[in-house]
Design a protein around this nucleic acid. Sequence first.
RNA 1: GGAGGGGUGGCCGAGCGGUCAAUGGCAGCAGACUGUAAAUCUGCCGACUUCGCGUCUACGAAGGUUCGAAUCCUUCCCCCUCCA
Length: 374
Amino acid sequence: MSLAFQLLGTDGTARRGRIATAHGTVETPAFMPVGTAGTVKAMLPQSVAATGAEIVLGNTFHLMLRPGAERVAALGGLHTFMNWPGPIVTDSGGFQVMSLKELRKLDPDGVTFRSPSDGSQHRLTPERAIEIQHLLDADIAMSFDECTTWPVEEPAAAFSMRLSMKWAERGRRAFQDRPGYGLFGILQGSTFPALRAESAKALTDIGFDGYAVGGLAVGEGQEAMFATLDTTLPQLPADKPRYLMGVGRPADLVGAVRRGIDMFDCVMPTRAGRTAQAFTRRGELNLRNARHRDDPRPIDAACACPACAHHSRAYLHHLIRSEEILGAMLLTWHNLHYYQDIMRGLRDSIERGALGHYIAAFEEEQGKGDIPPL
RNA sequence: GGAGGGGUGGCCGAGCGGUCAAUGGCAGCAGACUGUAAAUCUGCCGACUUCGCGUCUACGAAGGUUCGAAUCCUUCCCCCUCCA
């Protein structure tokens, strides 16, 4: 247990902090781009850093299958392997327990997966998930859990959550404490306040370097997600970072930070970028749409990313229509840059005690919608 | 000149007597995407439309056979291959 978290300030329930890891510090609230298979898709590591991201996420399950955790370790660990010298967090494979439901068998001890690529069998237990994350050299490791599906009946959610809590305890025992490295526990319990409370107590009793809220943004909707955060976050220790897993859209990030979340990861900016969607200060844009065909304007005039600095919507539209790789690259870059702009804005306004103003301005501008072409 | 093959919705291309406004693919028009089985997936895609298994016009052209034809017959037009 030696991942230092410093709480630098607060504004209401929102927090401004700093995490010190073996590979550098992370200013929070932070958005962590998803690099599942050892790459933030369509981005060079240095480009990811250029957007302002300080930490990226890798995945235990995917890297275990290919190229293999032992191989990554032999090649110097994930930082060296993917040339990302900064901090790395790794998901435990818990999300795949949900997303690969059809390809896995769950038992009290762990989960047996069939590989989506070649059908081969792979076993993940709470202990093995930690071992793999050690091999990958993740600065922040995550407990192996079962990401509970939604909707779910309360008894099933309770059963699933309690299993995850047992696994969290086993993972905690397997985790080797080293300076600059930490292990986070993951809360479950779906949208049931009593289950979330039970989960929070179970994890804080065990004691982790940080606490993640899992099992949200799986279909319950923003209102239910925020309601769950409202009742759950006060039960977590103030001196540890809080990570909302798999979230989200810009408005989700803003609302969750206001409620006291310090960290996020989400495929949204990268995946949406590869599928033609751009997030902007004035809402979302689908660059595949014909209306951009003759538009000489940038995606977002207020954005400093390469896509907005040097290229028109018409050109981006052309690249996407032509299935040119550069289209996916530029839109991914833009989305990640905009996400980091949001995080910078949130951190800055919390420091100044002006979060309320920031959010009001954010919501007003988002609500305006895109400026129509002349 | 002779022999053979073929002309199908923006394009390519199935269909070869009814259940065909016509399989697929591409292009086109939209939508979705939240700890990545995702550079993916879904819907629409002749015209009209009260958006309904409704009406109309359609499978080179014109006739014909048939209860019924994109599918069979006749003539014509055009394209391709091979032989002279």
